[in-house]
Computed example of a mutant assay.
Amino acid sequence: MAAQHSQGIQTLLEAEKEAAKIVQQARQYRVQKLKDARSQASKEIEEYKAAKEAEFQSFEDSRAGTTSNAQSAIDRETEVKLQQITDLYETNKDAVVKKLLDRVILVEPELHRNLKKVEA
Score class of each variant (00 low, 15 high):
92 N>I: 00
14 E>I: 10
29 Y>T: 15
68 S>I: 15
74 I>D: 04
22 I>E: 14
62 S>C: 03
33 K>H: 09
62 S>F: 06
58 S>C: 07
79 E>I: 02
105 I>S: 00
17 K>S: 07
77 E>T: 02
73 A>R: 15
58 S>M: 06
47 E>W: 08
42 S>I: 06
26 A>S: 14
35 K>R: 09
37 A>G: 03
10 Q>G: 05
104 V>F: 07
104 V>H: 06
112 H>M: 09
79 E>T: 09
50 A>D: 14
91 T>A: 01
42 S>F: 08
42 S>T: 10
85 I>C: 03
27 R>N: 09
112 H>Q: 13
106 L>W: 02
112 H>E: 10
77 E>Q: 09
2 A>C: 06
38 R>C: 04
29 Y>V: 08
7 Q>W: 04
63 R>W: 08
29 Y>W: 08
81 K>D: 11
13 L>W: 07
101 L>V: 10
24 Q>G: 05
74 I>E: 03
70 A>M: 09
32 Q>R: 15
78 T>P: 00
14 E>T: 13
91 T>Q: 02
45 I>Y: 15
94 D>R: 06
26 A>Y: 08
24 Q>Y: 05
49 K>N: 12
32 Q>M: 12
32 Q>P: 03
23 V>G: 01
51 A>T: 13
96 V>Y: 00
111 L>M: 14
88 L>Y: 08
93 K>P: 00
12 L>K: 09
82 L>T: 09
84 Q>F: 08
97 V>S: 01
